[in-house]
């Protein structure tokens, strides 16, 4: 069959019967659907079931109904973690996008230098999250790190970055920006490269400056790439555990205890698996909203000319 020619679909014999091409497609998809069902839907259903019980060491000891959900949404620890997650996610998102956009715009041209810098920018993203956070933990330590060297000249040599709620949250945000700006850069770079250069040329002929071109051409045409990066990063920041677990352990004063860490503590420190599953289901529902938003964006992109 010549390339580009449509595959013949064949007749549909009844309403539920599959055409040959649909059967072939199903054959490709089915194994992955089954894997997804086994690894995602199964545990999810089990977690949902557990969320109605008091669970001790994986034993269902008594039925609690919605009580676990009530305990979770009224728990000071969980409420505090929602606040910390909101602050962390919003600030980290804004800064990660800004740095990612700056990198993407600056490194758009495929010169050797830019390709090399892009590779370097990707290093924090490709190394293990745990290793990266451990590295930053030591950098921020007053005794062992060189933050004291940086802060010393301005009279803050003894300031403990990780032991103060404000600066600990800043360190957490720094960890996220340091690691995930590269991801934002990749997504935004893809959007940037899809803009026809002729538009910039025409704008230049019309006397438009760099800022004007960025505001009137780059930003509007990258709208979808930016939104996709926003949703993906937001899902990541809302759920991430490693940054707070390794960098601060949720301290000081619970200032950096994110929802992911609260979930971890409920489940694997306190072993309150009923409560932990109730919280997990609530976080999952929030994620569903974000995923639905992401799907809508993709649909919009398909419709775009």
């Amino acid at each position: 069959m010549p390339a580009g020619q449509a595959v013949p679909r064949g007749p549909r014999t009844s309403r539920f019967a599959l055409r040959p091409d649909e059967r072939r497609s199903l054959g490709f998809i089915l194994p992955f659907v089954l894997i997804e069902l086994a690894l995602v839907a199964g545990p999810l259903a089990l977690g949902f079931y557990y969320s109605f019980f008091k669970v001790e060491y994986f034993q269902l000891t008594s039925f609690r109904g919605l009580d676990n959900y009530w305990r979770v949404i009224t728990s000071p620890m969980v409420l505090g973690s929602i606040g910390a997650t909101a602050i962390f996610s919003i600030v980290a998102l804004g800064l990660t996008l800004t740095v990612g956009m700056a990198l993407a715009v600056h490194l758009e041209r495929d010169s050797r230098w830019n390709v090399a810098v892009r590779a370097v920018a990707l290093v924090p993203y490709v190394i293990s999250m745990l290793v990266g956070s451990l590295l930053l933990r030591w950098i921020f330590s007053t005794d062992a790190g060189f933050m004291a060297v940086v802060l010393g000249p301005i009279g803050l040599g003894d300031h403990s970055v990780l032991a103060n709620p404000g600066s600990a949250m800043a360190a957490l945000v720094f960890n996220a920006v340091w690691r995930d700006s590269a991801f934002a850069m990749i997504v935004l770079l893809a959007g940037l490269k899809s803009i026809p250069p002729s538009l910039y040329d025409a704008a230049r002929v019309d006397g438009a400056g760099a800022f004007y071109r960025f505001r009137r051409i780059t930003l509007p045409l990258m709208r979808l790439s930016i939104l996709i990066a926003v949703v993906r990063l937001l899902i990541h920041f809302v759920n991430v555990l490693t940054f707070s677990l390794i960098l601060t352990g949720g301290g000081p004063n619970g200032a950096t205890r994110t929802t992911g860490l609260a979930l971890y503590e409920l489940g694997f420190v306190e072993f309150k698996l009923g409560d932990a599953n109730a919280l997990a289901i609530l976080v999952f529902l929030f994620n569903l909203i974000l995923v639905a938003f992401n799907l809508l964006l993709f649909r919009e992109r398909r419709r775009a000319p």
């Binding site: 330590s141 007053t142 005794d143 062992a144 403990s160 990780l162 032991a163 103060n164 600990a168 601060t248 352990g249 301290g251 000081p252």
Partner: peptide, 20 residues
Amino acid sequence: PQDALVINVDDVTDQFIAGR
């Protein structure tokens, strides 16, 4: 040090070993 508020049992051992 105020860092003690975020130092865990592994860290305190490392710091003692390092002579801090």
